[in-house]
Amino acid sequence: MSAVGVDQRPSPALGPGRLGRRFRPSEQARRAARRFRQSPLSVVGLAIIVAVAAIALVGPFLVPYPDDASGALNIREKLNGPSWAHPFGTDHVGRDVFTRVVVGARASLLAGVVVIALALAVGTLLGAVAGYFGGWVGDAIMRVTDIFLTIPDLILALAFAAALGPGLLNVMIAVSLVWWPGYCRLARANVVALRDEQFAEAARSLGGGRARVLFRHVLPNAFPTILVKASMDVGFAILTTAALGFIGLGTQPPTPDWGVMVSDGRKYLREAWWYSTFPGLAILLTVVGFNLLGDGLRDVLDPRARRRG
């Protein structure tokens, strides 16, 4: 699902030739912000993400029926259509769908961010080691990524999640186990391209240890590309965890989960279109946000690719 971000070559724009010997945050940040603002869609993406994050943070305190997300039921009010009292209608046990969509943002966003953070940490570390030191360790690491990348990610995630058992934490672990190889490859490609650059040579000749050069000089320069991938992948990770929830491997009730809600609503498609529709829209919107943001970040950090996508 990470197909959109297939471009794994390190960007020449990030090379030290242009940026000088070391990554210079302030100067780059200013330039980046200017480029970012020029792309209205990226701003929209950022706005969506900020909004979703705000909803996830404070939403649970502002929703009209906070108890509906933590175990309260109102069976006699089940499957009522959208109204002023329930803008998104009610679900099969009479809970406010709006409340549950809002509170569900927390689990979804958390899942997306944690999955990518875990995958990024593990993948980048292994990829950097493989790329910088090479040798049989590097080969071994890359062969392992081959194995993971050979199995379609949803099948593998399904297998991991089933083996680990239900629950949000297990689902997050399962999805990160599927996603780290992507970062591993990207990091390795970047590190291989950068390790022999002048600035790295220079750092080594000044007596920097190999590990120190890798972590202080090489990796920071490889990081922007990885970050572009990550910003898009958060959206896809949300999509994947929602898919697992839909299949039946999500959070345990009564905690709201968008994927589980779409799945529950499926039984009442004709009577209660709102039940599946709104949580589905929430997923779509969030993923769109991360995609736009990712596109924008790529434009900023990788101008060569500007005209694409």
Partner: peptide, 15 residues
């Protein structure tokens, strides 16, 4: 294109 990659497939299937 944007919708295509962002759409939850299971949700689109239901729609």
């Amino acid at each position: 294109s944007l919708l295509g990659v962002s759409m939850p497939a299971f949700w689109l299937a239901l729609l």
